[in-house]
Design a binder for these strands. Structure first.
Lengths: 109, 109
DNA sequence: ACTATTCATTGCAATATTACGATTAATATT
DNA sequence: AATATTAATCGTAATATTGCAATGAATAGT
């Protein structure tokens, strides 16, 4: 064992978990924040910005790209990354939906 | 290697990553959804609801308790769990803040 | 063509997570 | 007291993630 039993859960549940997992590392949070702040795209300056090795940053970028949160276009020798606004919006809505409201009456335990 | 280099990132970044990690498993998503839906507390019926072993559910509950998202009170031989409304609200705000808005003008790449 | 730069990929080591059976601790029931 | 029920914890196995050095592929500049 050690592998998540995705078949026990609904598509939505697995999807939300996957979205959360994409955010479940400070390096990826930091990368996204840089990309949001600079809006205009940023390339490998992320390696300087954060203190991780190039290979590590590249891996995190790959993961973020895989879930669609960012996109990258080749620009000469460098690659320019930026937020995918559509995916960003979707993430926003998904999480907002999940945390919507609590009925929040009942005494609870 | 293999351990996250938390010292490279800000407190906020690590915190958000930790919050996301708590949601980064479909079983935990499912548990939270059950607790929200039933509002009134639920105990080990989670084991029946989801198809995982008791030890596994207990471990997920422990993680959710550790990040403060749920709370549990002993009720005879069983334990009654429920959402911690304060933490829930905080999570909601944190994620909403993170996904706020994109400046979303610039052409992007 | 040669070199430099930039980034992806590969391979490896260290650590973390997921899952469960077995055991333990606690309260309830008989 | 003896037994049953509930849930935490321990121990273990399988798998996933994190991080980096080394290598590779592509373009830019000389």
């Amino acid at each position: 064992m050690g592998a998540t039993k995705t078949d026990l859960f609904s598509k939505k549940q697995n999807e939300l978990a996957a979205m959360a997992k994409a955010l479940a590392h400070p390096a990826r949070i930091a990368i996204l924040q840089v990309l949001v702040k600079t809006n205009a795209c940023v390339c490998g300056s992320l390696v300087d910005e954060l203190g991780l090795a190039q290979a590590t940053i590249s891996q995190h970028l790959k993961e973020l790209k895989q879930v669609g949160l960012i996109q990258g276009t080749i620009e000469g020798t460098s690659v320019c990354y930026c937020i995918n606004p559509k995916a960003w919006q979707q993430y926003k809505e998904f999480f907002a939906m999940f945390f919507k409201e609590l009925p929040e009456n009942k005494p609870c335990c």
